[in-house]
Design a protein around this nucleic acid. Structure first.
Lengths: 227, 227
DNA sequence: GACCGCCTTGATGAAATCTTGATGAAGGGG
DNA sequence: CCCCTTCATCAAGATTTCATCAAGGCGGTC
């Protein structure tokens, strides 16, 4: 599912335990640090995909940790804090944090905001409303697909699948990612769905469905839209 | 300072006026839409750098607008809503929103969160981290390898092995380390696996597989990627 | 109530990938 | 110089993953 390494910088043991349970249930690996210095060194050595940072640390200020991290890393940072004043939030966000949650927060919201942060990591694609690949034309706002000028009808799932691949054109999307985006968290272990729909997409779009030029299989990994 | 075009989707005129003042004071240009459909079409035609979205719209659900937008755009979306329930937040964030503020919110916090969102966008435009070694190009985000410009197909294990060596380019990785990372703790005593896959990698990547220039054996220790 | 499009699910054969064993070369130490 | 360890290569099964076809179910519409 997520498969991310999360660095948790938090000095209070009960809070650490609580977060560990929640994060591991979501499928993340956890690194734990009790001090800012330890956190910095763990971030450097393990290159986590996300940092969860409590502001009230014994050695260094949390803001200072944020700034130091930002000097060499763009890893997403989510700040957890008991202080909810406007100035605290603005200070943390401007220091380089990506999000700020005030304790007490709900676990569900934290996990959702973590998903947002991890999503950013994968982003970086060009936002073209109309995408042209070979002889295909995908008009996303209108939800239309044309092949050599001829309109092709796609079902909702087919379009969603094509849109996902197109938005990350060139990149491999894993089965897990595709399944989660289209069918939701639950059905992340059903690659069979994908095979059926990829087959249908190829049949409708590819000139020779048996030897696809753009909707490419990456065996054991996922699928890719090749430009 | 910021100079961003912000699309504001909000049906209530007083709120629109309030936000317009705040945003223009910060230096942003503003596009305004009163309905979701209008918002969608403005987003497609003007390609704003940020979307501020009120959830309570007359025609389409705000969540639906988010999903539609996400099909073809990665523009940051900040949701403003009077509803502060956990499920509302999670739903919006998972639909593709990047942030969620509950009314009433402070102007300062909103502007700080906008700065965060715009920062993300800027960070997303940096070129892909492509590793170049001799005549090889390894694009990890795309999961693609080229030798003298020609695409080379790697199997999952081959790619993982190359990625490991590349992440520690120049350093020797022991058999034990490599085996543990790829096959897990159990099979840490099977250097034979490595020989087979190193052979395949050399065959696919090296000009003269028998005399490897980059995938070097460190006899008795492990392997190393030489730059 | 029958039709229709769409989604789900199962079965089957094909393809890609991984594992494993056999064989011989290279290199160092006694 | 011989022996032993480590390494490289090849190739045949074993296993996993993939493609395709088709039947059945579900929900909407006429």
């Amino acid at each position: 599912m997520s498969d991310a390494t999360v660095l948790l910088v938090e000095d209070e043991a009960p809070m650490r335990r609580f977060l560990r349970v929640a994060l591991e249930a979501e499928g993340h690996r956890l690194l734990e640090a009790e001090t800012a210095r330890e956190g910095l060194s763990l971030a450097a050595s393990h290159q986590p995909q996300l940092v969860l940072l409590d502001l009230g640390l014994p050695d260094l200020d949390g803001l200072e940790l944020t700034r130091r991290l930002r000097e060499w890393s763009s890893v997403p940072i989510i700040v957890l804090s008991a202080r909810g004043q406007e100035q605290d939030k603005i200070g943390a966000l401007d220091a380089g944090a990506d999000d700020y949650l005030t304790k007490p927060f709900s676990t569900g919201e934290l996990l959702a905001r973590i998903r947002v942060a991890l999503r950013h990591r994968a982003a970086g694609e060009k936002p073209e409303p109309v995408l042209r690949i070979g002889e295909w034309e995908v008009d996303f706002p209108k939800r239309e697909v044309r092949v050599r000028g001829a309109r092709v009808h796609l079902t909702p799932i087919e379009f969603k699948l094509l849109a996902l691949l197109a938005r990350h054109a060139g990149k491999v999307l894993t089965h897990r990612q595709l399944l989660r985006e289209i069918w939701g968290h639950s059905a992340a272990a059903q690659p069979h769905y994908l095979r059926v729909y990829m087959g249908q997409l190829r049949h409708k779009l590819e000139a020779d469905p048996a030897r696809p030029r753009h909707l490419v299989t990456e065996s054991g990994v996922g699928y890719r839209l090749r430009e």
